[in-house]
Write a protein that binds this DNA or RNA. Structure first.
Lengths: 135, 135
DNA sequence: AATACCACTTGCAAATATAAAGTGGTTTGT
DNA sequence: ACAAACCACTTTATATTTGCAAGTGGTATT
């Protein structure tokens, strides 16, 4: 049910594991194509992926464009609204890093980017994401 | 499917709307009892509430205790692991506040607490939550 | 002693999410 | 030029989750 809580607004949109994993892939792993998302370690299904991409596009968190060279290929990228989710993802990552086992390969990409210099790290990452968004 | 990504660890646990709404109720609205959670605006069902409380307890994000005066009454509170989710919730709230309509009554409680002085606000709120946790 | 309250649990229908296979077009390789 | 492979999805069928109503075994209130 919808409510007037601002937290609930966000949770209605991305309070779902798969949605946030797609945003993670765009944000930290530089993925852009449908089949790149499909290949993620968590094993998202085509149905769920299509559903979430369409939801994210309707919410204007991501943008869909056709690749200039390959007509059948579609390029996804984060909008400003999507890029603004970086602090949310970073803080989920920092929390997980504190409470999960440290032995994993993705750790350096997500946590290393944030931990040492949290705010300036976010600014730098935002700039890079904007570049991709605007190119 | 489980993966080695630190983000995924967190999402496996609380990457679910209802779970985060319960944490919100504990964190910002001072709720402590089963029927207080049931009464939230979003209308959680008893089945889902019982399921999520048990999950959160198994993950040691919340703690269950019996009320001293009323034996049948059970008091829920956030553990340190739960309190450490504050930056996640705050940032979801800040994002929602930026992109949702501003006309809602919960806004001041969540956003007002964070926006003006973000870091020291978090520290103060953590202290209050620890007091509840330790009492 | 009866009634109300408490934190759940159970049973079941309905809604939702998911996997597996298929579709129609595009590009690649020969 | 033609077949095979690739692309981003749909469709179909099954599995899971959810909401609802009612019930449970206690405890507190009147």
């Amino acid at each position: 049910m919808r409510s007037d809580c601002p937290l609930n607004y966000g949770l209605e949109i991305f309070g779902d594991k798969w949605t946030l994993l797609i945003i993670r892939d765009l944000m930290f792993f530089g993925k852009r194509y449908y089949n790149e998302f499909l290949a993620s370690d968590e094993g998202i299904s085509t149905t769920v992926l299509a559903d979430r991409l369409s939801l994210l596009e309707r919410q204007k968190i991501i943008r869909k464009r056709k690749d200039k060279e390959h007509k059948q290929r579609i390029v996804y990228s984060l909008t400003e609204k999507g890029i603004d989710l970086l602090p949310v993802l970073i803080n989920i990552g920092l929390w997980s890093d504190k409470y999960a086992s440290r032995l994993n390969p993705h750790r350096d990409i997500i946590i290393g980017a944030a931990k040492k210099d949290y705010m300036s790290g976010i600014e730098e990452m935002k700039r890079r994401l904007y570049d991709i968004h605007l190119q």
